[in-house]
């Protein structure tokens, strides 16, 4: 058993919160630059130019690229040969509390009914996986709600087939229009149960733009959907244009003979995430 102290987890999460919000991924920066070159709409070009310059300012000033620094979503892949000394959830939560305070990040997490905001962006959302090995892998992905609110899940039935899946995904993007801050990134989960589909969709958002799906059929489906979405004309900021999405990421899981769940998790261009292995 390898021993990891909870304090180390807290320190790691704290830094990941700040870095995720203030240092946008290079793959997003490159994708925005590429999109700006091919965008036909003058408004689209202007918005992409602003987003590129925004990332540069954010990095230079160590300031969050977007004021919606999100709910703190963490994937914790815990090696089964790891022993954690202390409370794992408590350690992650304390890391989030410190990261959001020390990084001057916005506290957006609130009670759903009373709407009372504790002011420290806790508690985080933590998804645990037990995996082989003696390492703890952490992914921190702050999730903004302009895009989260436009996400959707549908329990399709087998007769809908692949065509039904595609239609649901396209409709979700179409109905969202300007609201999720296009250009967007889509995480899609097909199959499993209701919660499994949603979790796959969320985890797909950890992928890098430009990374090809190892499954050739899914890779082809991702390309087909990306093209169809960009043909919708929604464009940057929803003001019309060619760049509605930067990437579509899909994964599947076996489902029930009676079902075909599909989850679409919307992500704005700020596809922020940081990873660490302890």
């Amino acid at each position: 058993m390898r021993v990891i102290n909870a304090t180390q987890i807290t320190d790691t999460i704290r830094q990941m919160c700040i870095d995720a919000c203030c240092d946008m991924p290079e793959n997003v920066y490159i994708a925005l630059k590429k999109a700006k070159d091919s965008e036909r709409s003058p408004f689209g070009k202007e918005i992409l130019t602003q987003l590129i310059s925004n990332i540069e300012i954010s990095r230079e000033k160590q300031m969050p690229a977007c004021q919606d620094t999100g709910m703190a979503v963490i994937f914790a892949d815990v090696g089964q040969d790891v022993h954690i000394e202390g409370d794992l959830f408590g350690a992650i939560e304390e890391g989030v509390r410190r990261g959001y305070k020390d990084g001057y990040l916005r506290a957006s997490t609130t009670d759903p009914l009373s709407r009372k905001n504790p002011g420290d962006n806790t508690p985080p959302i933590v998804h645990y996986n037990i995996v082989p090995g003696d390492k703890l892998t952490l992914h921190m992905a702050p999730k903004g709600f302009g895009s989260e609110n436009m996400s959707a899940l549908k329990m399709l039935t087998p007769s809908s087939g692949l065509e039904g899946v595609k239609a649901f995904i396209i409709d979700t993007v179409k109905n969202a229009g300007a609201n999720p801050c296009p250009p967007i990134v889509l995480g899609i989960g097909i199959g499993g149960t209701m919660e499994k589909a949603a979790l796959i969709a969320k985890r797909q958002l950890l992928r890098e733009i430009g990374e090809v799906n190892p499954d050739p059929e899914l890779a082809a489906l991702e390309n087909e959907l990306l093209e169809k979405i960009n043909n919708l004309g929604i464009g940057p900021g929803g003001l019309g244009g060619d760049t509605t999405a930067l990437a579509v990421f899909i994964d599947t899981y076996p489902t029930h003979i009676a079902g075909l769940p599909v989850a679409v998790n919307m992500q704005c261009h700020a596809a922020r995430h940081k990873s660490a292995i302890i």
Partner: peptide, 13 residues
């Protein structure tokens, strides 16, 4: 009037 969603650092300036 539409401000660019996500351009929070730029708009702060």
């Amino acid at each position: 009037l539409a401000a660019t969603g996500g351009a929070g650092a730029l708009l702060a300036s």
